[in-house]
Amino acid sequence: MGLMGTGILKGLGVTLRHFIDTYAEDLKYVLNKSGARQPRPLRRQSPKNKGLVTVEYPRERLPLPENFRYVPFLVYDTEKQDDKCTSCGICAKVCPPQCIWIVRTEDPVTKRPVPQPKEFYIDTTICMNCGYCAEFCPFDAIKMDHDYELSYYPDQEPHARLVHDKSRLTKPDTYHASIHPTDWRRELEDRAAEEAKKKAAAEAKAKADAAKPAGGAAPAAKPAPAPGAARSSAPEPDKPAQADTGKSSSE
C-alpha cells in the first residue's frame, strides 16, 4: 500500500494526464497540424482519440450511422410516381405501441380494396422508434428516418406536427437512397434478381408459346421491362410480390 496519500497522488496523476490530453487535442484542432484536422464529432467517436472532446450541438452534430432510426417515413417511388406502400397492414400489426393507422383505398366502382393507402398516420407522440415497421414491411415501403428534430412552435398546428399524416410521412426514394446507401443497394439487387427471374419466366413462356403460333409475340404484354433499367418497376402493385425480398412472412 505504501505511504499514506500515494493513492491519491496516483489518482491525481490520471486527472492531470486527462487535463493535458484534452488541451493537446484542442491545440491540434486549432493549429490544424499537418492537415490532420478532423471535425470534432468524428474525433469524439474514434477509439483512438485522447482527452475529452465536447461536441457543440447544435452547431456541430455527431454523424449518424446508417442504421440510426428515428420515426419512420413512407417511401415514394419517384420512377413510377407512386407510393410504394400497398396498405397491407403488416406494419400496423407489428407496431408495439400501435401508433400506425392506415385506411385502405377502395376502388370507386367495384368497392374492392386497391393496394394503396388512402390515409396513413403515425402518432409520433407514441412511436417508440423500435424499427419493426421498417423491418417487417415486405415492400420496402416504410423506412426509419434520420431526422430527429421534430419539435415545433406552439403557433403551428400541434396535431399536424406530432401526428404525421400521409403527406408529411411521404419522402422520395432518392432521400431514402441518400441516407441508407447499403439498404438501397440491397433493394436494387433484390429488384434486379426479381426482374431476371421474371424475364426468365417470360422467356420460357414465350418459348412455349412460340411452339404453337408462329408470330404471336405474346410476352410483349406486361412484364418484360426495358432491359438494363435496374431500378425500374417494383413488384406490380396489384400482384403483391410473393416473397420478393425473402423478408415477408406468412400470416
Binding site: S87, K93, V94, C95, Q98, W101, I102, V103, R104, P113
Partner: peptide
Amino acid sequence: PFDSRWPGGHH
C-alpha cells in the same frame, strides 16, 4: 394488435 388500426384506421 387492435383492429381499429387497419384497415379502417382513422387516427
